[in-house]
Computed example of a mutant assay.
Amino acid sequence: MPSLEKWKQFTQARIGLNRSGGSISTKEMLKFRLDHARAKDAVLLEPNWELIHESMNQLSTKYGIKNIFVKSKITSKQEYLLRPDLGRRLLDGSELDLIPKDEGFDLSIVCIDGLSAKAIDENLISYLELLFSEIQKTKLTLSPLVIAKWGRVALGDEIAEKLHAKICLVIIGERPGLSASDSLGIYLTYKPKIGNTDESRNCISNVRPKGLPIPLAVKKTIYLIHEVLAEKKSGVLLKDQMPNESLSPSQEKLIPEN
């Protein structure tokens, strides 16, 4: 069997920790506290909204897509953590009500800060840039891009329903763990509407450079969008049959042998 040191290169999980008697080593304890602090920061801090808006405007200009900023009914970060129900509903008087909806759209993309400011700051724009470049190769019709503050995943249902979109694609900062505080979660829902629950969604999780790489996440997203439109269903009703391409040939060679 390979040593634990060889396996450590394939995971950020805490395996094979050094110990001194019945306790883990000082080095491992300090690393644990640092990761815990990073996880707390990811939840409690706000994304760099000024930079996000600037980047979104650049994307909108490049791809000819309008972007809209909205808020949930939440009024503070503390309330966001205590009242997830309010994070699922839009603040009254949204600009979304002014968008023409005569023809509707195939896809509504909603970007939500969620529970990780770090994920939004570091990975959102990279994901969107590649996603839009791939969508341009298709015949999909897009609603305006929506950026939402203090929202939960279900906020996307109300937004996409207002925009008369067939599919809601939510990109959100995932709840951080002690080994990953920068993960994006991608959720797809067919026929989005207020009251939808999680079994109606397909999820792509752990999207980050050291998790599911952004190019593979975008490829999975495009695949699921086409499957949802073809099958007219999502969530537990839709079987994901995309071939497993999570490992490149170069990565496969690194897996230690027994």
Rank of each mutant, 00 (worst) to 15 (best):
K166T: 10
V207S: 05
E50I: 06
H53Y: 14
I222W: 08
L169F: 06
E161R: 03
K139A: 12
T26R: 03
K77W: 02
I15P: 02
I74K: 06
K149E: 14
Y187G: 12
S23D: 12
K77L: 11
L142C: 11
S126P: 00
K6A: 15
K166G: 02
K77T: 05
A148Y: 01
I135T: 02
S248H: 02
D106I: 01
S25N: 09
T61S: 13
I194A: 13
L81E: 08
N67T: 12
E158R: 04
S205V: 09
V153M: 07
A117P: 09
D85V: 11
P243I: 04
A37L: 05
R19N: 08
K40Q: 11
E257Y: 05
G156S: 15
A148D: 02
R33K: 14
P213W: 07
K219Y: 06
R38Y: 00
S108Y: 03
F32V: 03
L51M: 11
L82W: 05
K66D: 13
V236Q: 10
L184D: 07
K73F: 00
D35L: 10
D92Q: 11
M242Y: 14
L238A: 11
L178T: 08
K101A: 06
G195C: 03
K210H: 04
E50Q: 12
G211N: 04
I99S: 10
D198N: 13
I65P: 01
L107I: 09
L96T: 04
I194Y: 04
L82R: 13
S20F: 11
V110P: 07
